[in-house]
Amino acid sequence: MTARDRSARAVAAPTAPAVPVSPAAGPGTGPAGVGLAAPADPSESPGALLAAIELHKRFGATPALDGASLRVDAGEIVALMGPSGSGKSTLLHCLAGIVGPDAGEVHYGTRRLSAMSEAGRSALRRGEFGFVFQFGQLVPELTCAENVALPLRLGGVGRRAARERAHAQLARLGVDDVAGKRPGEVSGGQGQRVAVARALVSEPRVIFADEPTGALDSLNGEEVMRLLTEAARTAAAAVVLVTHDARVAAYSDREVVVRDGRTRSLAG
């Protein structure tokens, strides 16, 4: 080994973070985060619940995705991190079948999203996916309980059953007291919990959360993340979480960094 190799290695080895307390590992909550070492090519590891392979997407002259790949296993919580404008939301929209990539494939289980009809993708989103955004996702004219019941109603669940499930879900998230209020009458933190309840109520296999705490203060943000991840783990739902906040990402099992429309993968 040359001196240059050695010093290259010294620079490459990450410094153990200086933490005021040693992180005593808590009870098992999924695999340790090794996002950068995970295989970039989802075809290398079959059996993923959700996989994006070499996605490209432009908006006019703007390249939003430039060869982004990602795999998400069942029940796994993956954080997408990276600077603003790097393509995180576009990647999430492609994974959820909201936006079609110009090139590349998204697989959900054995299905290829691009091979499905728009109606098929729409049914998939309703039946298997849940969504939480930064804000503006609740229908202002409906009560919180009606908002939570909405995905069930759209999926053909009867009024009474939908209402009962909505109330139970609101209770699980500690916001049953706002069931009869409209979104405009509740606080930001309560509104996000209602949104989480709505995302979870149809027992999705994947929850897509784009900056779910972006409009909340620290305390409410922590609470929403704790509830969201606890509920997802209990339901064995996978979560694709877009965030630029490391404390939010720390609720995930691993992180994937998106930069300039590409997912970064550092081997070793």
Partner: peptide, 13 residues
């Protein structure tokens, strides 16, 4: 990026 991975591992714990 390596440092971020290391930090996030500590932050997860």
């Amino acid at each position: 990026d390596r440092q971020r991975a290391e930090h996030l591992t500590a932050m997860r714990a």
